[in-house]
C-alpha cells in the first residue's frame, strides 16, 4: 500500500524533457505563461500550439494520461468559451440560440481565450509530469539565490519545502492509522448528513495535529544533533548543471518567442 503513494503527478521516464535541468523547465514555463498573452492571430496561436504539443509528445508520456490529468480543467475551458460566446457582441450575427444572438467575433474570442487557457495548463502540467518535486525545490532554491542579498530566507524556504515533501507520505500513513483507530471506536466518516460527517473529522484532525507537532519537535532535535546550523557554510549533495541539452532547449524556446513576435499582428 505505502509504496504506491506518489507525491504530485510525476511520471518517471528518461525522455529529453525529463532530463532537462529543472531550472530551465521552470523558467521556460514561466515565460511561456507570459508570452501566451502576446498571441493575437491564428498564426501565432498555431505556432504556440505546435510548440506545446511537440513538447507534450517529447515527454514520451502516454497522451491519454496527460489528457486525463487535465480533466478537471476541461470544465473551466468550456465555461470560458460559453461565457465569451454569449457576452461578446462583435462582428456579424451568425445565428441565434434560444433567442440569443451569437456573433462571429464571440466565436473567435471564445475560441482564442479557451485555447490560451488550455495551453497554459498543458505547459504547467508538463512541467510537473516530468520533474520530481524535489527537483522543483532545488530549482527554486537556486533561482531565488540572488534574493539572499535582500535577506530573503531562500535556504530555509527550500528546506521547509523538502521536509514537507518528505513528511507527506508519513502523515498520510498516520491519517489512515488514526481514521481506522477512530472508526473502530465507532466514528462514522462515510455516512450521515454532511454536518455530522464534518464533525466526525475533528477526532481525526486533532490527533494528527498533535502528532505533527511532536514530530516537528523531535525532528528539530535530530537535525540539531546532526550539526544543522542554518544554510551558512553548507554544501549540497544534489547538484544541478546546465548541459548542452539545456542550451539547445533554451535556443529552441528563443526561436519560438521570436517566431511569435513575427507572426503576431
Amino acid at each position: 500500500m505505502s509504496s504506491k503513494i506518489i507525491i504530485g503527478q510525476y511520471v518517471p521516464s528518461n525522455s529529453v524533457i525529463h532530463r532537462l535541468d529543472p531550472r530551465v523547465k521552470l523558467v521556460t514555463v514561466f515565460l511561456f505563461v507570459i508570452f501566451v498573452f502576446f498571441a493575437n492571430n491564428t498564426l501565432s496561436y498555431g505556432w504556440l500550439s505546435v510548440f506545446a504539443i511537440t513538447s507534450a509528445l517529447l515527454t514520451k508520456i502516454n497522451l491519454k494520461y496527460i489528457i486525463r490529468g487535465l480533466t478537471p480543467i476541461w470544465f473551466l475551458v468550456i465555461f470560458t468559451f460559453l461565457l465569451h460566446l454569449f457576452v461578446t457582441h462583435e462582428g456579424q450575427i451568425l445565428f441565434q440560440i434560444f433567442g440569443l444572438p451569437i456573433y462571429s467575433g464571440a466565436l473567435i474570442q471564445g475560441g482564442a481565450i479557451s485555447l490560451r487557457f488550455f495551453l497554459l495548463i498543458l505547459m504547467t502540467s508538463l512541467m510537473t509530469l516530468t520533474t520530481t518535486p524535489i527537483e522543483i525545490t532545488d530549482a527554486i532554491e537556486l533561482l531565488l539565490h540572488p534574493l539572499k542579498k535582500i535577506k530573503f530566507p531562500v535556504h530555509e524556504l527550500a528546506l521547509m519545502m523538502s521536509i514537507s515533501l518528505r513528511f507527506i507520505p508519513t502523515l498520510m500513513q498516520e491519517t489512515e492509522k488514526i481514521s481506522k483507530a477512530q472508526a473502530s471506536r465507532g466514528v462514522d466518516f462515510k455516512t450521515g448528513p454532511l454536518k455530522e460527517r464534518i464533525q466526525a473529522v475533528v477526532p481525526l484532525l486533532i490527533p494528527l495535529f498533535v502528532g505533527a507537532f511532536k514530530r516537528a519537535e523531535e525532528l528539530a532535535m535530530a537535525m540539531e544533533a546532526r550539526g544543522y546550523q542554518g544554510g551558512e557554510g553548507r554544501t549540497k549533495l544534489r547538484e544541478l548543471s546546465i548541459r548542452r541539452l539545456d542550451w539547445s532547449a533554451m535556443l529552441v524556446f528563443l526561436v519560438v518567442i521570436i517566431g511569435l513576435f513575427l507572426f503576431r499582428q
Partner: peptide, 9 residues
C-alpha cells in the same frame, strides 16, 4: 523514533 529523525527525501 525512526521516522522523526529521517530528514532527507
Amino acid at each position: 523514533n525512526p521516522d522523526n529523525q529521517f530528514v532527507g527525501t
